[in-house]
């Protein structure tokens, strides 16, 4: 009984805060999705029109899937780029490990907005990449493809997320008992076989965590598309932001937000229910 009251006393303040400012807003948003009017001011109307409109407008859905696809691409490429960094730090860096780790994390301490903006300078038609390409004669006139495109969004967000994706992969690699790798060699594995059969499966939790680290924030992105994406690189997050900040159709925006949440939850569900991923990788 004593424990019960201590537990309750400790847990109540954070629980109440989370309820009021996290769960309640999500609930209110759900209620709003059934309302009408630009800011949902009509309290007494219950309508499914917003859902109908969302389902009937295939461009909304297409943008959602395309954004999910972009986020997926960003996450996968980030993992592919980050894994060798994490591997090098965990297994090869030796005494330089913490210095290299700091070196890779430091850029993330710069303002997020400015890091993205810097890519606008890098990719822009008067930017660094174009200048290099022009001066080396690889291209003859400034290429506009580099900026205001979906590729620009992907490149910029990969830049932003590689260090964060690297962290969970690194910590799962660090946790692998080095004896297991010796055991694999002892039982006849060449080094690539040890990697495929032991290191990679055991680092999968870190890879999955890294995937979510990148996937969830990029799915909700609206700033990067605004800065470097242009009309071509617009994402689903921009659609939601427009509904709230410009079009002022909050109920519609709520439906769109819930659709995005559904995508996130379905993906989480799939990735955690597929069973231990490591087992799937067993040949």
């Amino acid at each position: 009984m004593e424990n019960r009251s201590r537990f309750t006393t400790l847990i109540m303040p954070p629980a109440i805060y989370l309820f009021l400012l996290f769960l309640l807003p999500l609930g209110v948003m759900l209620v709003f999705s059934f309302r009408a009017g630009t800011t949902g001011a009509a309290h007494n109307i219950f309508t499914l029109n917003n859902y109908r409109a969302f389902l009937e407008n295939s461009s909304f859905q297409r943008l959602l899937w395309r954004s999910a696809g972009i986020s997926f691409t960003i996450s996968i490429i980030s993992i592919i780029l980050a894994y060798p960094i994490a591997y090098y730090l965990a297994f090869r860096a030796g005494v330089n490990k913490s210095i290299l780790m700091t070196l890779i994390i430091v850029p993330t301490w710069t303002s997020y907005l400015l890091r993205i903006f810097a890519w606008k300078l890098m990719l822009g038609s008067t930017g660094v990449l174009n200048s290099i390409l022009l001066s080396t004669g690889i291209i003859e006139q400034a290429s506009p493809i580099l900026i205001y495109s979906r590729t620009a969004v992907v490149v910029t967000l990969i830049y932003v997320w590689v260090p964060f994706v690297m962290l969970p992969i690194f910590s799962s690699l660090e946790r692998i008992d080095r004896n297991l790798l010796e055991a694999a060699a002892d039982l006849g594995c060449a080094s690539w076989e040890s990697f495929l059969r032991v290191t990679l499966p055991l680092s999968m939790p870190g890879v999955v965590a890294g995937f979510f680290f990148a996937f969830i924030p990029t799915l909700g992105e609206f700033v990067t598309p605004l800065l470097v994406g242009g009309a071509q690189g617009s994402m689903y997050g921009n659609l939601i932001q427009d509904q709230f900040m410009r079009a002022l159709n909050w109920p519609m925006g709520s439906v769109m937000s819930l659709a995005m949440l559904a995508v996130v939850f379905i993906l989480m569900f799939l990735l955690t229910r597929l069973g231990p991923l490591s087992e799937l990788l067993e040949l």
């Binding site: 807003p25 209110v28 799915l219 909700g220 937000s257 995005m260 949440l261 996130v264 989480m268």
Partner: peptide, 14 residues
């Protein structure tokens, strides 16, 4: 695991 844009708009509504 919730995109910030959703946290932002849901609090805006509230």
């Amino acid at each position: 695991v919730i995109p910030y844009v959703i946290l932002g708009v849901s609090l805006l509504i509230l």
